[in-house]
Design a protein around this nucleic acid. Structure first.
Lengths: 343, 343
DNA sequence: TGTTAGCACTCATCCGGTCGGAGTGCTAAT
DNA sequence: ATTAGCACTCCGACCGGATGAGTGCTAACA
């Protein structure tokens, strides 16, 4: 069977209508809804075809039709029109002075949730492949040393190390110089075991301390574990009856709280190096089992070379894809712009 | 009317039973449940009295009785027996190497949630009245300065400051000495405007930088805004039908996500200086509007002089008060112990 | 040949009535 | 003071009919 233009129009009408109401939509509704001027009977015939082709389905006989995952997919890929809605208020909200990254991100998640009425998440940008800028060891008190590690992008890590107390200021200075001359400007791939051995050897009796510092450096640069995720608007799921029953709601909320799953989603997203775009997962396509009745739209934002994070919107399958995709696209741009301004 | 021993026993039986089942409990049940050997008729009479006195109530005529808030209150205050249950597994779980405070706290919240089947929250300890340990200014690159601020308890703050580039190493050293000699060991109350003026004057042309650093110090010590709250087990509320309807669940989840309310709860708790104990809020007693169908049990933990945080458990009014109170009490001790070991 | 009106059919939902069970309050007997 | 017994209340489950939305099919029409 052919998916001719009329079928597409009817499918589009069904989806649009279903997005609004959440109720199965019948032939009569479509007959009036579209500008095709077809009777409900004709629509019925077409709908039977569309169902056979797998784009729509009936919850039960004598109910209207609802879009299938395949239907949504077609809608997102081919039909959806790019609206250029005004999302300028987002910008204003974002520009409230937010100098700290985590506050900003929390704010973004929240604004996005309020704006879209879906649940949202945002990950901190990950700093994979970042380089060490410098290291500083300082004595804090008798047997504690503070290691401050600054990586590119001015991300700072602190680490308290316990040491034997026989460490005078001069030695400390030497260690500082030793570490900095060897390690500054290097990325995690460039710090190998051989180099570490050399440094340790030069550190002589302080090799243990140096070892600990280098380990901390490794953790600071790799920073993968630091992938923090903020969520907002979780309770929006209650606005969609199809997600709100106890079983599903509980699982969803758990997924949002645990964040483990979300982390994986983000990882997948970021692992795909070329991907700087917007990704739509519909129903079963989602990598998160407990969200298989949802759709997830993710956007990757890139603040700087290799410094990327993910924004995600999780809602019912009858999500307003147009709006969501456009909002995310705008937001992407704004985040990047904002970052440049801050620099 | 008198609340004699028998009435208390019956009330206790009603509550115990209701805690288990969540269903209104009838006279016949109690008649068999207790070791009083009374017929259901007698129990009925007593129950009528208890109802008149306000300790129990009927959801509707010809239903069994459920405890009123007043009933729970009596139970918690007077009746509840202190069980010394084993909560040792908590300890084991906590001792998994968790060197970072925030990870530890998240872990605690989670363990507690899994253990009790209620929603839990924990606040970071607040450092009000903490003293500055030392300050360190370091050049990061041409026009960025890193200020590392360490306060007692080894809490570390970093701050990047933009500066004009004409700042040589010697000046930096002088500024470091200047700041440290004046400010080390001081609490926020002790740093006043007069002192700041003196330091700024001595800093000469670098007074702007010094000003910014001091401001950062202020924020680091005050740290009030840093009251972070971690929650866990939110989806446990779905285990209790009386909390699980859409309306309530949505409000509750919102409260957990927003955390604003929880913050206030914590503040109230911590503001009460003498309070190092366990607090039980039943139903309407709670300061959080959206939790008026819940009970909240909070415990204050004190890691160090003036370094206190709050743990909270939020569940249905038919909460297992015995278990919760005991678990919290044990946890309190363990957290404090753990902290001492780390020191 | 594509479109449409009409009709019989299906199915979810709503509504009112019935019924059983759980639990009560009251009374009279112990 | 306690208890057995009984009438009463009320909730919840179950049932059957009515309703209405929506379908598939067929026959007529342009």
């Amino acid at each position: 069977m052919q998916l001719d233009e009329r079928k597409v129009k009817i499918l589009q009408a069904i989806i649009r209508n279903y997005l609004e109401t959440g109720e199965p939509v019948g032939s009569r509704t479509i007959s009036k809804y579209t500008d095709l001027n077809l009777s409900s009977a004709t629509i019925r015939n077409e709908m039977a075809d569309l169902e056979e082709m797998g784009y729509i389905l009936q919850p039960h006989t004598s109910a209207g039709r609802i879009p299938s995952d395949k239907g949504y997919r077609l809608y997102v890929d081919a039909i959806m029109e790019e609206k250029n809605k005004e999302v300028e208020d987002l910008k204003e909200l974002l520009l409230e002075k937010e100098d700290k990254m985590d506050h900003l991100l929390k704010q973004v998640a929240k604004v996005l949730a309020v704006n879209t009425n879906y649940a949202t998440m945002i990950s901190t940008p990950n700093y994979r492949r970042n380089k060490l800028k410098f290291i500083q060891l300082t004595r804090v008190d008798h047997d504690n040393l503070l290691a401050v590690i600054v990586v590119e992008g001015n991300v700072i890590k602190n680490n308290i190390l316990q040491v034997a107390s026989n460490l005078d200021d001069e030695t400390l200075l030497k260690l500082n110089i030793l570490l900095n001359t060897h390690l500054n400007g290097l990325s995690i791939e460039e710090i190998n075991l051989g180099m570490i051995a050399v440094i340790k050897q030069q550190a002589g009796s302080y090799s243990t301390i140096v070892g600990e510092v280098i380990e901390a450096v490794g953790e600071a640069i790799k920073a993968d574990e630091d992938l923090e995720i903020y969520t907002s608007g979780t309770n929006n799921i209650f606005k969609y009856p199809e997600l709100a029953d106890h079983q599903k709601a509980s699982e969803l909320i758990n997924a949002f709280e645990e964040k483990r799953m979300l982390t994986e989603l983000v990882r997948d997203n970021l692992a795909d190096d070329g991907n700087t775009g917007i990704q739509v997962y519909i129903g079963d396509e989602t990598p998160i089992q407990s969200m298989k009745d949802c759709s997830i739209v993710t956007a990757t934002y890139e603040l700087d070379e290799g410094m990327r994070g993910t924004i995600g919107i999780i809602g019912p399958k009858r999500m307003d894809y147009d709006k969501v995709v456009n909002t995310l696209r705008t937001l992407q741009g704004q985040l990047e712009e904002l970052y440049k301004k801050k620099q």
